[in-house]
């Protein structure tokens, strides 16, 4: 940039421009670096939660127990019967949408809200539920258990 032809006014403008550009560039760099650093900082929940389809290893699921697994936005109850079979049903009670649980001593899937009971085929056998629980498919790939919607 050739400066010795410039008038003092022009020179003043040039300096002002230099400052504005420099300052702007600095602000711009900050507006890039700050989000970048924030992004690179691991969030409090360090890892994505294992949920939905994958339900764990077969060897980790005990017989005669039931667990709730999150399938997308809905809860699914995965039951391993006393004889070792794996069953999965929607865990939303068909009465008023409470979340059901496996009751070992009763040998049924039980809803704590109004004492609804479902047998291990998902059929409503006692209490207010009007319909059985939707069944889900349990797929065994080696040791991995995964749950899928019943097609």
């Amino acid at each position: 940039m050739n400066e010795h032809n410039a008038s003092p006014r022009e020179q003043g403008k040039r300096d002002f421009l230099k400052y504005v550009l420099g300052g702007g560039l600095f602000a711009w760099v900050v507006s890039i670096v700050y989000p970048l650093l924030a992004y690179l900082t691991p969030p409090k929940q360090a890892e994505v939660e294992v949920n939905s389809v994958k339900a764990g290893k077969l060897s980790e699921i005990e017989r005669d127990t039931g667990t709730i697994v999150r399938f997308g936005n809905k809860p699914v109850i995965l039951v391993r019967t006393a004889s070792g079979e794996m069953r999965a049903f929607s865990a939303t009670c068909t009465h008023l949408d409470c979340t059901v649980q496996y009751q070992k001593d009763m040998g049924v899937i039980w809803c704590a809200c109004h004492n609804g009971k479902y047998d291990l085929n998902g059929r409503n056998v006692s209490g207010p539920p009007p319909r059985p629980l939707d069944e889900f498919k349990v797929i065994l790939q080696g040791e991995e258990v995964s749950i899928s919607k019943n097609a």
């Binding site: 940039m1 403008k13 040039r14 421009l17 504005v20 550009l21 702007g24 560039l25 602000a27 711009w28 507006s31």
Partner: peptide, 15 residues
Amino acid sequence: IITIVAGSLYLTIRM
């Protein structure tokens, strides 16, 4: 910020 930078950059180019 980008507008300021772009604007001043443009003026710089003109200059």
